[in-house]
Structure formats: structure tokens, C-alpha cells
Design a protein around this nucleic acid. Sequence first.
DNA 1: TTGGAGTCAATAGG
DNA 2: CCTATTGACTCCAA
Length: 398
Amino acid sequence: APESPLSSAEESVKSQQEEQMCQASIQEPSETSESQPGTPLPLPLPGHAGLSIQEMVAMSPELDTYAITKKVKEVLTDNNLGQRLFGESILGLTQGSVSDLLARPKPWHKLSLKGREPFVRMQLWLKDPRNVEKLMDMKRMEKKAYMKRRHSSIGESHLLESGLSGSDLTQSASPQNLSQQHQQQQQQQQQQNQPHLKKPRVVLAPEEKEALKRAYQQKPYPSPKTIEELASQLNLKTSTVINWFHNYRSRIRRELFIEEIQAAAGEGGSPSARPGKSGGEGDNSCDGTESDSTAEGRPSGSEERRGLLESPNLSHRDEEGEAEFPSASGTSRPRGGIIDSLFGIPESVSTAPATATATPCRNPKDSSLRKKKAANLNNIIHRLEKAANRDEPHEWEF
DNA sequence: TTGGAGTCAATAGG
DNA sequence: CCTATTGACTCCAA
């Protein structure tokens, strides 16, 4: 693998190794690209030069993920193409993943090889305008197939999908040669014998998320013990709490990256004035949505669960007149000393929250930034602790 | 094992 | 239909 041929960009030639694939038009501008309505194919990369997509990713120069997603979004909306079709036929990803990717692209240097793949595919796709046409054709064909289907089978027989009988159905697992590792075919509710028991998706109530966020601010990396406590206090499964922390950390981190990109975008010589308003992304963070009255939530009551988790403070936000950064240049950073405002959470004082210093939550913009910075710092602290072979930070004196 | 990166897929809103 | 959100899961590296 240590080969890093500095070969120039790309020199498309050769053919490809992909066989199937409807639109195998690699050669000339023949817009044949005929495909059966039933040729989903998760990811037979869009035709192009010789090497496998992985190789291309490996030697791809740094790409501007933000610019790429911006362009893709533009092209898709301009042509009325949806994320689902684009994702499934061009990127080999599902709609939700595409949405996420387009909305919050991570900077190139923070992406793993795998994570870069979708961006390389997007760029390749953007290179040839004819690709848009192909997608549009595909869309038309899909609609046609859909019409036919619903016409032939009006309200009747939907055969149970449990046995996944043949029948059309889109997105079937492409047979033969489904590319290597491919997607994870997770979610195997195989242990069923009886009528499927699809476990309902867990949906955390706002109060539960609130409590978890509060816990996160105190301890981004809770110990198993803490997790157990949280789980029992919130009446959630331990795994749910663990997952929540994994996801939350990951998503907070991702927001940090976003800022990084936006910040970088505002530099350089070209003073291209962005029409958009200041980059102060709104982050509710403060969310004054206290559990309010309805403390319970969803069936299966489960009362009590009071606990220290309750936010003793009543954070309000003071959104009265605050000067909108009168500073001219847009590159001005909103705030200065962030350090002092990190860790706005007392933690320790378990009892007697009486006077409580109440989590400061003044300006929403500040709090957002602060939270992210804190997340980053907490991450570092956590690593140091690990490295030092210690557990339970307990108290931190600064 | 733990945590991070990527995703999937259900589902809430439009 | 379409898109955004998000709990859960797979894979991998430390």
C-alpha cells in the first residue's frame, strides 16, 4: 500500500472492470444508458477510467468537500433529482446518509479512506454533465415502473414482506458480485419464528435527551457505572444510553468540523462576499424546554426518576438587545476568552443546589461555540486520563 | 473492550 | 413523493 505515485490527476482511459451496470457507457457520448427498471445495483460506480474507486480515493488529491456538496445539492435541486435516487445509484448510500453527508460534510483531512469515497464519487459524477441526464432518465424509468406496478395491482395482496418473496421490489440485494464488503446487512431479526416482532424504534423523549445532554456535559465519557445509573434513572436500556453517548459525541465532533470548514472558507485572498448572513449557526443549546409539566412520557409510565438529573436551574436566555457584532469585516470572531466559560457546569456539588450558579447560558451563539470547544477539550482530557491509567476523573481542579 | 467513523433504516415533517 | 434526524449496528484500530 505504501505506494504513492504522484501521478497527475486523472488520465481516464482504459475500460473498467465492472460488468453489469446498466449505464456502462464509458466510450463515446452515446446516451444509451438503457437499464431495466429493476436494476437497482447499489454501487456499481459510475463508469469512468480504469482503476477501482478505492484506488482513485487513495490517490485523490485533496478535495473541497464543502464545495462538492454545495454543487451536488445545487445540481440535484435544479434538476429535481432526489437524494434517494442519487444516493442509491451514484454513491451506493441510502437517502438518510446522503442527506447527512450533503448537509454536514467533514473536511477532507478528517475523513478516513472510506469516508472519502462518497466525495470522490460525487466529484466524478459532477465532472460529466451527461451524468445528470442519466440520472434523470433513471428517474423517469422508475416512475414508469411504479405506475405500472400500481396499475396492475390495485388495492390487493401485498404479500407479506417477511419472506421477501420475489416480486419486483426495488433495492433488492444485487445478486452476483455484490461488491466486496458491501453494506452491512445488519438488522437481522432472525430469531423470529412467529409473526415478525419488529422491535419498535426507540424514541427518546425530550426530557430524556435533556437529561442525557446534562449528563454529557458533566461527563462526556461516563464510566460503565455511570451509564448504568443513567439508564436506570431514565428507565432506558443500558445499550441505549451507550449508543446515545457514542452518537452524541460523534455528532458534536462533527459540528466542530463544520465550523472549521466555514472558518476556512472565510479566508484566503478572494473576498467573495457570501450572500448568506453571518455564520452564526443557531444552536438551541440553551433550550429552555424544561420538562415542563408532563414529566412522564410515552406508554408504560414509569414514574419517579427524579434524581440529580433534574436540572435544578432554570436557564433562560436573555435575548434582548444585543448588538449584532457591529464589527465590519465578516471574519470577525464573535468572542474572545472562551476558556473561562468552558465547563459551565458545577458537577460536584451534588447536594444543596440551592443557590446554584445555574449554567450560564447567555448568548446562544456563545454557548454553541463553548459547548463544542468543551467537547473537544473533554475529549483531550479523557485521552490523557486513559493514558495515565486512571479512572473516574472525580474532580478537576484548574 | 472502548471509542470513533460510517451507515442504515425507521420515522417525523413538508 | 422528499428531506432531516437519530438510535442502533458493523468494522476497525488502539
